[in-house]
Measured scan of single mutants.
Amino acid sequence: LTDEELVTMSVRELNQHLRGLSKEEIIQLKQRRRTLKNRGY
C-alpha cells in the first residue's frame, strides 16, 4: 500500500487489507496511517 492509499482509504477498506496480516504488521500500518493523517495530507 502507498502512503496515499493508506490515507484516502476508508477504515472498512483498510481492515479488509489487514485481514491475514500479522499483529505486528497491522500495528505498524496503523501507526504509519496515523502519522500521515497528523501531517495533514
Rank of each mutant, 00 (worst) to 15 (best):
Q16I: 13
T35R: 14
I26F: 04
V7F: 09
K30F: 15
K30C: 13
Y41T: 13
M9D: 01
R19L: 09
E24Q: 12
S10I: 02
E24N: 09
R33E: 03
R34K: 11
M9S: 02
E5P: 00
L1W: 06
G20Q: 06
T35G: 07
V11T: 10
I26A: 15
Y41A: 12
L29P: 00
M9F: 03
L21F: 07
V7Q: 06
T8R: 15
Q16Y: 12
E25T: 09
R34P: 00
R33S: 03
Y41L: 14
R19F: 07
E25R: 07
T8M: 11
L1F: 09
T2G: 04
T35P: 01
E5T: 05
L6M: 02
E25G: 04
V11G: 06
Q31L: 12
L29M: 07
R12L: 08
N38Q: 09
L1A: 02
E5F: 05
L1Q: 01
M9Q: 02
R39D: 10
N15G: 06
E25S: 07
K23T: 10
L18D: 01
L18I: 09
E25D: 08
L14V: 03
I26N: 04
T2F: 02
V11C: 15
R12H: 11
T2K: 04
R19E: 08
D3I: 03
I26S: 08
L36C: 03
E4T: 08
E25F: 06
E13V: 06
Q28C: 13
I26Q: 15
V7T: 06
R12A: 12
Y41I: 13
T2R: 04
N15C: 15
R34C: 13
G20H: 09
T2H: 03
E13Q: 11
I26V: 11
E25W: 04
R33W: 15
T35Y: 15
E25N: 06
K23N: 08
Q16E: 12
L36T: 02
K23H: 10
R34N: 08
N38C: 15
N38W: 07
R34W: 08
Y41R: 08
L29D: 00
V11A: 10
K30A: 05
E4L: 14
R34Q: 10
V7E: 06
K30T: 07
E13C: 07
V7H: 04
L1I: 10
K30Y: 14
E5A: 08
S22H: 04
E24K: 12
T35N: 14
M9I: 05
R39L: 15
V7L: 13
H17T: 05
Q31A: 13
S10E: 03
N38I: 08
K37C: 15
R19N: 08
D3W: 04
N15D: 07
I26T: 06
G20L: 08
T2E: 03
T8D: 06
T35F: 15
R34S: 07
R32E: 00
N38A: 10
L36M: 04
S10G: 06
Y41H: 13
Y41P: 10
H17N: 05
L6I: 05
R34G: 04
L36S: 02
T2N: 04
R39K: 14
E13I: 05
S10N: 06
L1H: 02
K37A: 05
V11D: 13
T8V: 07
E24P: 09
E24T: 11
R39E: 14
R33C: 10
V7S: 07
R12W: 11
R32L: 04
R32Y: 04
D3S: 02
E13K: 08
L36N: 02
G40M: 14
I27P: 01
R33L: 14
Q31E: 12
Q28A: 15
R33H: 12
Q28H: 11
V7D: 04
D3A: 03
L6R: 00
E24W: 11
T8W: 06
K37E: 05
K23E: 09
Q31H: 10
N15I: 14
Y41V: 13
E24Y: 10
I27Y: 12
Q31M: 12
L14A: 00
Q31T: 10
N15M: 14
Q31K: 13
L6K: 01
R39Q: 15
R34V: 06
K37M: 14
L29Q: 02
R39W: 09
T8I: 07
L14H: 00
M9R: 02
L29I: 15
G40R: 07
Q16D: 10
R34M: 06
M9T: 02
K37D: 03
E24C: 10
N15L: 14
H17W: 13
T8E: 08
Q28V: 12
L36D: 01
T2M: 03
Q16A: 13
T35Q: 14
Q28T: 10
Q28E: 12
E24G: 09
Q16F: 13
N38F: 07
D3E: 03
R12M: 09
G20E: 05
K23P: 11
K30R: 13
L6W: 00
G20I: 05
R39I: 14
V11L: 11
L1N: 01
L14M: 05
M9W: 03
E25M: 12
I27W: 12
H17K: 11
L21C: 06
R32M: 02
Q31C: 08
V7P: 01
Y41S: 12
R12E: 12
E13F: 03
L14N: 00
I26M: 07
H17F: 15
V11P: 08
K30D: 02
T8K: 14
M9E: 01
R39C: 15
V7I: 12
I26G: 12
K37R: 12
R34E: 09
Q28N: 10
R33V: 07
H17I: 13
E24L: 10
N15P: 01
H17S: 05
G20Y: 08
L29N: 01
Q31G: 06
I27M: 12
N15R: 15
R32V: 01
H17M: 10
G40Q: 14
